[in-house]
Structures are given as structure tokens and as C-alpha cells.
């Protein structure tokens, strides 16, 4: 268990150190973990996102705590969230103490100019992978679409393009999805 705890800490320390752009930027890293560690599956990750978006607190922190809990229970949640915030605390204190005008530094600006579109692509790829796992069910080695979930995804995505509906709270959408899931026994 101690071994897993240390690995958990190290993996989330790396996420805290390299996830540039906050919450959604942790998703590609969390997804990468499903491939290399036996801690949680992609299906569980989908549930983790839903819970993290509909509970208070920063999205990235919620997802990481959940991932830690999935791995080692309450202790795991503590370890992963500690690992995640430690680089932030160190970096921010160093910047606040030694670097004035950090966000105006031309090198920092140029680096972020390059990182931002790359992170967008990373998140896009992660979301595509997520959709593949969430909307398709593997059956005898063949992928078949989970029709109900696909219809919900397409319709809700369309609705989200309507300005008024865009502002609705994610938890409300999840509730709608859950009710539809129960009524139609998806």
C-alpha cells in the first residue's frame, strides 16, 4: 500500500507540475494514467467527471481527489490532492518572492503562446477518447454504439449551442441525463 501511495503522490505531483490551463488540462493526464496504472478505468473516469462537475470546488482538484479515492480510499484522496497542489504552492511562492512581473515576461508569454493551442489539442484528443469509451460498448471485440447515450450526447450538444441553455448548471444536465437513463432503462 505504501508503494501505491508513493506512486500516486508522484503521478499527481507530475500532473500538478505540467497541467497548464487548470481543470480540463488535467484530463489528458488522468486518461494517460488509465493506460499505465491499474487504478481506475476509462468508464470510471466518465463518472468521475460527472461527479466533479456537479460538486463544488475546482474541477481538476475534484477529479484528482476522486481518482485518488478510487485507488486507495480516503487516504488515496489525501495523497493525490496533496501531490497535485504541492508544485503549485512551490512555484507560486518562488514566483511571488523572486520574480516581479512574471506574467508580463516575454519568455513566459512566448511559452504560453505555444502551450495554449497544444493543450487545446491534448484536451480535444482526450475528449474524443472519452467519447469513444462512453458512447460505444465493446462486444466480442467489436465496438457497437450505445444508442441511448449517443442520442443524448448529440441532442444535448446541439442544445448547448443555444445561448440561453449554455449557462445552465452542469449538475442540471446530469440530472436530466440520469432521469432519461432510468426512464428508458439505457
Amino acid at each position: 500500500m505504501m508503494q501505491t501511495a508513493l506512486e500516486l503522490f508522484w503521478e499527481f505531483f507530475k500532473i500538478g507540475l505540467f497541467a497548464v490551463g487548470g481543470g480540463p488540462a488535467t484530463l489528458p493526464f488522468l486518461m494517460e494514467l488509465t493506460k499505465v496504472k491499474p487504478w481506475y478505468t476509462m468508464e470510471q473516469l466518465t463518472n468521475m467527471i460527472a461527479i466533479s462537475e456537479s460538486t463544488p470546488g475546482p474541477l481538476g482538484l475534484n477529479m484528482s481527489t476522486y481518482a485518488g479515492f478510487q485507488t486507495l480510499g480516503l487516504f488515496g484522496g489525501l495523497v493525490s490532492s496533496f501531490g497535485l497542489v504541492l508544485p503549485s504552492v512551490i512555484i507560486i511562492i518562488l514566483i511571488a518572492r523572486f520574480l516581479d512581473n512574471f506574467s508580463q515576461n516575454p519568455y513566459v508569454k512566448a511559452a504560453f503562446y505555444g502551450v495554449r493551442p497544444a493543450v487545446t489539442a491534448l484536451i480535444a484528443a482526450a475528449v474524443l477518447g472519452l467519447c469513444r469509451v462512453s458512447l460505444f460498448v465493446e462486444h466480442n471485440g467489436k465496438l457497437t454504439p450505445a444508442v441511448g447515450a449517443v442520442i443524448i450526447a448529440v441532442v444535448v450538444f446541439g442544445l448547448l449551442q443555444v445561448k440561453r441553455l449554455k449557462k445552465l448548471h452542469p449538475a442540471l444536465w446530469f440530472l436530466v441525463g440520469a432521469v432519461i437513463g432510468i426512464v428508458f432503462r439505457l
Binding site: 487545446t120 467519447c131 432521469v179
Partner: peptide, 22 residues
């Protein structure tokens, strides 16, 4: 059943996040 419905919503919301970000 409920989580199966929620899956569709997660996909829609995340796709929307990607578009806003892009």
C-alpha cells in the same frame, strides 16, 4: 441506468468545453 444517461451528458459537455477552448 442513470449513469448510462449521464455518460451522454458528459460527452456533450466536454465536447462543448473543447469548442469554447478552441
Amino acid at each position: 441506468h442513470a449513469l448510462m444517461g449521464v455518460r451522454g451528458i458528459v460527452c456533450a459537455l466536454m465536447l462543448n468545453t473543447v469548442i469554447t477552448l478552441a
